[in-house]
């Protein structure tokens, strides 16, 4: 099985190097999709041996992962491991995710079983649980952490799974995959809240978050 890791990155120069090193031990190739960073993310990623795809302008993590998926599909990889560049995802868990992916289409690293979810702020916990229950009910799928970005996909699934959202993509993608009948499994992984870099959850994101989620869910239900 040929495996590629896709690491979406935006201003992650402090952590991207160690994430690449940790991830490279478990996959055939590491691809960093730089979402038009202002810092040295691109240079550091290249220095650590990663293939770097550079966006011409910033689109958001959803757009960055889509570029990575496209690379994986065009280069005929079998599996795609998705890892955040901020160091929140432990590359040491990748073998367990890959092992589970041998007999399913998508594996999500869940913070629910490991108890990591309890370390998150109350608002995010409530949001994650609410969205997870919504997706589980609408997609008729058993998931406990729908917003986790630490995932493994079978590339054949990604070919027919084109999420439109450039920012909060996970809900739309998971719901669309579930409605397509994809086999989605979870593996318990510890994932503490990020300590380095800027979170994608800024004030304006927090305000717009509920509307974007409604948009993502409605889009999946109406158009797919």
């Amino acid at each position: 099985m040929r495996t590629v890791a896709v690491i979406p990155a935006y201003d992650e120069s402090r952590t991207v190097g160690s994430v690449i090193e940790g991830t490279a031990e478990h996959v055939d190739r590491v691809v960093v999709v730089d979402d038009c960073s202002d810092d040295d993310t691109v240079d550091i990623a290249r220095d650590h041996g990663a293939t770097v795809l550079e966006h011409a302008f910033n689109t958001g993590v959803g757009g960055a992962v889509r570029t990575g998926y496209r690379y994986a599909v065009e280069r005929d990889y079998d599996l795609v491991v998705q890892v955040d560049a901020d160091g929140q995802h432990d590359p040491g868990a990748i073998p367990r995710l890959l092992e589970r992916a041998e007999d399913c289409d998508m594996v999500i690293a869940s913070r629910h079983y490991s108890g990591s979810l309890e370390e998150y702020p109350l608002v995010r916990r409530v949001g994650i649980r609410g969205l997870t229950r919504t997706v589980a009910a609408l997609g008729d799928v058993e998931v406990t952490d729908v917003t986790s970005g630490f995932r493994v996909y079978r590339t054949s699934l990604l070919e027919g799974l084109d999420h439109g959202a450039d920012r909060h993509w996970a809900v739309e993608q998971t719901l669309a995959a579930a409605r397509q009948g994809a086999d989605i499994e979870e593996v318990s992984v510890e994932m503490p809240p990020r300590e380095e870099g800027d979170s994608q959850f800024t004030l304006d994101t927090l305000v717009l978050y509920p509307f974007r989620m409604i948009d993502a869910i409605a889009r999946s239900l109406v158009f797919r």
Binding site: V33, E54, A56, T59, G63
Partner: peptide
Amino acid sequence: LSRLNEEVSILKH
């Protein structure tokens, strides 16, 4: 624009 961004990054690589 978003799709163009994707296309440009792949072609550039």
